[in-house]
């Protein structure tokens, strides 16, 4: 028993997060330096997720440099220049669980299923985005340098 605990502890680095059904990740400082998936994200697919008001939901609150998208939100910072302001690891944590950095933010945690209240039946146990979609969005945001 003690040995198992010790092994468990030694196998789990500080900052490690593992929720049921989600891929584990490690938080270092204000970032998740390592991608959630083995394959790199695709900026083109990420752009489509950002524009999709049922999937990414981003433009409901944020404006961004997607000129063909009308009716962008003003509740949150403009996404233009996000890739210059933040590293990929910082962007990843802000998407995955920004409430670690600011508990009062209106930015939802996009890759989290624990600690939520009255989640609708269709959404229970599911994160807002999949790990692959998170990586795609991170790849797209990293291209927004101006």
């Amino acid at each position: 028993m003690a040995l198992a605990l010790l092994l468990g502890a030694s196998a789990t680095p500080p900052g490690a997060v593992a929720e049921a059904g989600l891929r584990p990740y490690v938080v270092e400082g204000d970032a998740i330096p390592a991608p959630l998936t083995g394959t790199p994200g695709d900026a083109g697919r990420g752009r489509a997720v950002v524009a999709d008001r049922q999937r990414g939901l981003c433009l409901l609150c944020h404006a961004g440099p997607l000129p063909e998208e009308r009716f962008q939100g003003t509740l949150a910072p403009d996404l233009a220049g996000a890739g210059a302001r933040w590293s990929e690891g910082q962007l990843r944590l802000r998407l995955v669980d920004g409430r670690r950095l600011n508990p009062d933010t209106i930015m939802p945690s996009y890759y989290r299923v624990d600690g939520l209240t009255r989640v609708g039946p269709g959404w229970r146990g599911k994160p807002v985005l999949t790990a692959e979609e998170i990586e795609d969005v991170v790849a797209f945001l990293a291209t927004l340098r101006d």
Binding site: R53, L57, L59, L60, C61, R70, F71, Q72, G73, T74, L75, R99, I106, P108, S109, L116, T117, R118, V119, G120, W123, K126, V128
Partner: peptide, 23 residues
């Protein structure tokens, strides 16, 4: 705070009223 998006009524209608949600 409620739901998958983990938002309360107050976060929008007290703290952010007057701003735009999409259009």
């Amino acid at each position: 705070r409620l739901g998958q998006l983990d938002l309360s009524c107050a976060q929008c209608h007290d703290d952010n009223a007057g701003k735009r949600l999409a259009g």
